[in-house]
Design a protein around this nucleic acid. Structure first.
Length: 642
RNA sequence: GCCCACGUAGCUCAGUCGGUAGAGCGCAUCCUUGGUAAGGAUGAGGUCACCGGUUCAAUUCCGGUCGUGGGCUCCA
């Protein structure tokens, strides 16, 4: 038998016989302690288990506990253990589909008539613990695809058969743990004892391969970690997310409500929420004006013919509401603002000298969303986009994109979002516009991103049919990503509406149109803001900035006076002069997350001051009303960043 | 839209194996005037989501509709 050289990445080498397993090689190369923390290895670009045979000189990168990859492997392995447990508890009549690791956990899809209940979860978890205790190894085998098909057909595992058929490979790998053998690419942890901390979280319906024409499967979600502390931390984070849920906080803080008799997906902004929204809107408008945009207002309905011209009736009608008849002419609610902005553009003949035109509007649109997709403020049927359209010349495109990115990040940063996932989506299979224009636009988007020094990923073929786009997902306090900003180049509408400007050569040219939204929609953005801040809004856009609390009725008159004084200065101020104890009033203001409590007793009344309590419990020394106003105004202008 | 679960007072929830319902918070009134996270008493609030069916009787059982939640799908 010949020897091969196995090298540890950035480490030493050993000479071992051909056919040595990865596990054996790692034992030779790593200390006992380190090997115990290793779950698999990377050989070149391939992931391998401990049982993988080494037949040529190789370099091993150990995958150790703590890395992203190790968690992926662990969770994938846990999914297998769950499937094994499910079949041990409920029998092999339950058919298995797929069970991958996902962000923060894993799932496995099963075909079973009855739904899984919480008691079932307990049984499955108990069985899983038993399996884990036995430290069962994962065995990998490679077999001919045809043999695998025969095998799974015999077991009546139709989903597995379908998967293998679609793979169209000669051979497939199988993993066996205990009595359970599954089609799987691997790798897995060496044995089940690595699975130390897991929990099944919920069950939900899912279609086989995500297609609603297929069988509905039951998907059990769970999560898994290498130690109990990490699991606990994760479960706490889930609890925290629940506490921050904008639907819950929206109700508690009286920001918005959705009512059954008004309609699903339609938001009613309550006074506090309306105030919050107004602040976001005003800030947005100010910033746009400062960045040389002009503001538009356009209607909510338009003649159906307009939507024919724009093409929305062809490619967007399933999202549009049925037409209404006005004097025998069909009108439809707008799902987008673009045709209206185009209407402003075509109002007169345009010269190359006036480009770029930057027009912004908080435009309310209505889109049909499937009932099951609706979700609080994040997915609704009527919403207001922070929309803008830029009409420019090709030579202006890159600068315009760059400027949009600047404004975009400036606004997001000011609202406290400092991390993003950025995607550049390129030409899809079906598209309109010339290849040269796609080339130019895609390149401009890319250059602008690079010039701004932004990291981005390319989503090949994921652009809209009318042009390439940049999508920005913002990361919130808990690290969750939300799709908000989008910048899209459009070759379609300028063509459909025959947009033109007169060039320096005195002939007509077609402008490039850019659609963009920074917050996406006010509804979604505010929903994300609520969760990001857990309802504890910074002073500059807190719906209520301060509340006056008197200690006894004796100070009521003085409180009324300073209330009006503060209100007139533009502060968002409330008063609580009820016949309640101070403790009680403080608690309530605290629960309402109000930034400042102005406490007024006899001392303050005599001195013409207020004592300021912050929502973190700290106290400021008594100050006069003008001093307090000045303090607030300073803090607000700092927050607004203008 | 599809699968599963759910819908009881303004809110959070309990309850009725079929005989029209309860708590806490909130609200109102009264007592209390108390300096940094809930003072006390009394009281008013419910077509038990809506529409049908079964039944002597339905909030409870059955069917449908609407809505909500977790997913699938889609997206601002």
């Amino acid at each position: 038998m010949t020897d091969i050289t196995i090298t540890l990445y950035k480490g030493e080498s050993v000479s071992l016989p051909t056919g040595t397993t990865v596990g054996e090689a790692l034992s030779a190369l790593l200390s006992n302690k380190q090997r115990k923390r290793t779950v698999a290895a990377r050989i070149d670009d391939m992931l391998a288990d401990f049982t993988t045979l080494l037949t040529e000189d190789s370099t091993l990168i150990p995958i150790q506990i703590g890395s992203e990859e190790s968690l992926d492997i662990l969770r994938h392995s846990t999914a297998h253990i769950m499937a094994l447990a499910v079949r041990e508890v409920f029998g092999t009549d339950i058919k298995i589909a797929i069970g991958p690791s996902i962000e923060n956990g894993f799932y496995y899809d099963f075909l079973r008539d009855q739904p899984f209940s919480p008691e079932d979860f307990e049984k499955i978890e108990k069985k899983m613990e038993e399996i884990v205790r036995q430290a069962l190894p994962f065995y990998r085998t490679e077999i001919q695809s045809s043999d695998a098909i025969t095998r799974f057909e015999a077991e009546d595992e139709k989903y597995k058969v379908e998967l293998i058929q679609d793979l169209e490979t000669k051979s497939v790998s199988l993993y066996q743990v205990g009595e359970f053998t599954d089609l799987c690419r691997g790798p897995h942890v060496p044995n089940t004892s690595f699975i130390r901390a897991f929990k099944l979280l919920r069950v939900a319906g899912a279609y086989w391969r995500g297609d609603e024409k297929n069988d509905v499967l039951q998907r059990i979600y769970g999560t898994s970690f290498f130690d109990k502390k990490e699991l606990k931390k994760h479960l706490n984070a889930l609890e925290e997310a629940k506490k921050r849920d904008h639907r819950k906080l929206g109700k508690e803080l009286e920001l918005f409500t959705i009512q059954e008799d008004i309609g699903a997906g339609l938001i009613l902004w309550q006074p506090k929420g309306a105030q919050l929204r107004r602040l976001v809107e005003d800030y947005w408008k100010d910033e746009h004006y400062r960045h040389d945009y002009d503001l538009l207002y356009t209607p909510h309905i338009a003649r159906q013919d307009l939507w024919k011209t724009s093409g929305h009736l062809d490619f967007y009608s399933e999202n549009m509401y049925s037409p209404m008849d006005i004097d025998g002419v069909a009108y439809q609610l707008k799902p987008m603002n673009c045709p209206f902005h185009i209407g402003v553009y075509t109002n007169k003949k345009r010269s190359y000298r006036e480009l770029p035109l930057r027009w912004a509007e908080l435009g309310t649109v209505y889109r049909y969303e499937r009932a099951g997709a609706l979700h609080g403020l994040l997915r609704v049927r009527g919403f207001t986009q922070d929309d803008a359209h830029i009409f420019c010349r090709p030579d202006q495109l890159e600068d315009e994109i760059f400027n949009i990115l600047e404004l975009n990040l400036h606004i997001l940063k000011n609202f406290g979002f400092k991390e993003y996932d950025i995607y550049l989506s390129t030409r899809p299979e079906k598209y309109v516009g010339s290849d040269e224009s796609w080339e130019l636009a895609t390149e401009s988007l890319k250059l602008a991103l690079e010039k701004k020094g932004l990291k981005f990923m390319i989503d090949p073929g994921e652009g809209v049919f009318y042009g390439p786009k940049i999508d920005i997902k913002i990361k919130d306090q808990l690290g969750r990503a939300w799709q908000c900003s989008t910048i899209q180049v459009d070759f379609n509408l300028p063509e459909r509406f025959q947009l033109a400007y007169t060039g320096a050569d005195n002939s007509d040219h077609q402008p490039i149109m850019i659609h963009r939204a920074l917050m996406g929609s006010l509804e979604r953005f505010i929903g994300v803001l609520i969760e990001h801040y857990a309802g504890v809004f910074p002073l500059w856009f807190a719906p209520v900035q301060a509340r006056i609390l008197n200690i006894t009725d004796d100070q009521a008159e003085y409180c009324e006076k300073i209330f009006m004084q503060l209100r007139k200065s533009g502060l968002r101020i409330e008063k609580d002069l009820r016949n309640e104890k101070l403790n009680y009033k403080i608690r309530e203001a605290q629960v309402n997350k109000i930034p400042y409590m102005l406490i007024v007793g006899d001392k303050e009344k005599e001195n013409g001051t207020v004592t300021v309590r912050l929502r973190d419990g700290k106290n400021l020394p008594p100050m006069t009303i003008p001093d307090f106003i000045e303090k607030i105004e300073m803090e607000v202008s700092e927050g607004r960043g203008i």
